[in-house]
């Protein structure tokens, strides 16, 4: 019965081109890059093998340690911020705005589609001190606080970065989590209300456990994205001041293209890939285990 649908020649014709392009652009280069990590040099000057030198350097390089730490700090702060802000927004949509939430939902989602570079430049100017005092510092001045040089210290730059990324993507997580909250049956909420649960108690004991799965998926999506963040950081701080806001992605890019060391760049890329895979695996495992406990 499946004779026509099992036509091997047709499968090859339909799937072949996609598989070929995918293999040539993604699979082969991934393995190739693995090979690069045992060399030093670049495309223009040529490559020379150097055994495990890159890995030795990777483990002793203070810049790697710093970039790894920043990546972790940034990923955790942005992920928590995005998901918490998104969840609060979703609760607002479902329980307080109800039908009227469509417009707000659409509006808060809008920054998600904006080009990151544009948003980065916008925030850079919103928070600037000179030559013109930006709106944020003007606001601080208006309430009697001195202007802050947000991009002059790593602490401030970090928080502006976090704030910008939350601003950019909270609408996205709000819509994602909204879909999960809307799926909670009205009957469950009603009976909980009849039992006397209201406000925070209702949210903590009924809404939170019931939206836990979608909350976990959001967490996975978010951490997976924030570990790879590049555009927003390069546009807002370019890793500065110094290299204090430079994550692994940016360090890899600079090592490869500013310093022309493709071999070591590939080693950093490999580290980034391993970190992404490990974190996703761990979050996935943890979320699975908690689900079976419930």
């Amino acid at each position: 019965m499946h004779r026509v649908l099992g036509d091997r020649r047709a499968v090859l014709l339909l799937l072949g081109p996609a598989l070929l392009v995918y293999s040539l652009i993604m699979l082969v280069p991934t393995l190739w890059s693995l090979g690069y990590s045992f060399t030093s040099g670049n495309t223009i000057d040529g490559f020379t093998g150097n055994g495990l030198d890159n890995f030795h350097r990777l483990f002793t390089d203070p810049d790697v340690r710093h970039a790894l730490w920043f990546t972790a700090k940034y990923a955790v702060a942005v992920t928590v911020g995005q998901v918490v802000a998104g969840y609060l927004l979703a609760l607002l949509y479902v329980f307080f705005l109800k039908k009227a939430s469509a417009l707000i939902r659409t509006l808060v989602f809008f920054p998600v589609v904006l080009p990151t570079v544009a948003v980065g430049l916008l925030f850079k100017n919103l928070f600037q001190v000179g030559p013109q005092t930006g709106p944020v510092n003007s606001l601080l001045n208006a309430v009697g606080i001195e202007s802050i040089d947000f991009f002059g210290s790593s602490g401030h730059a970090f928080w502006v970065l976090i704030g910008m990324d939350i601003w950019r993507s909270m609408g996205f997580y709000a819509v994602l989590l909204f879909a999960g909250l809307v799926d909670i049956p009205d009957e469950v909420l009603e009976s909980a209300r009849l039992d006397g649960a209201a406000g925070l108690r209702l949210i903590r004991h009924i809404v939170l456990p019931m939206s836990f799965p979608v909350l976990m998926s959001s967490l996975i999506f978010s951490i997976n994205g924030t570990l790879k963040a590049f555009d927003s950081i390069i546009a807002l701080t370019n890793g500065g001041p110094g290299n204090s806001t430079s994550p692994l992605t940016l360090y890899m890019f600079q090592t490869s293209f500013t310093y022309g060391d493709y071999g070591y760049g590939s080693t950093i890329a490999l580290l980034l890939t391993i970190v992404c895979l490990l974190v996703t695996l761990v979050v996935f495992r943890v979320s699975r285990r908690d689900l079976t406990k419930d």
Binding site: L15, L19, Y22, I25, M26, L27, V28, P29, T30, W32, S33, Y36, T43, I44, N224, L227, K228, T249, M252, F253, S256, Y262, G265, S266, I268, A269, L270, L272, T273, C276, L277, T280
Partner: peptide, 26 residues
Amino acid sequence: TLLVFLTGMMVPPQMILLPLFTVYFQ
């Protein structure tokens, strides 16, 4: 085969940039 395609979503683009640069250059 679908799984092979899915793994592509996990790989950060940094991993493929350098070999591709070499190929495009050469």
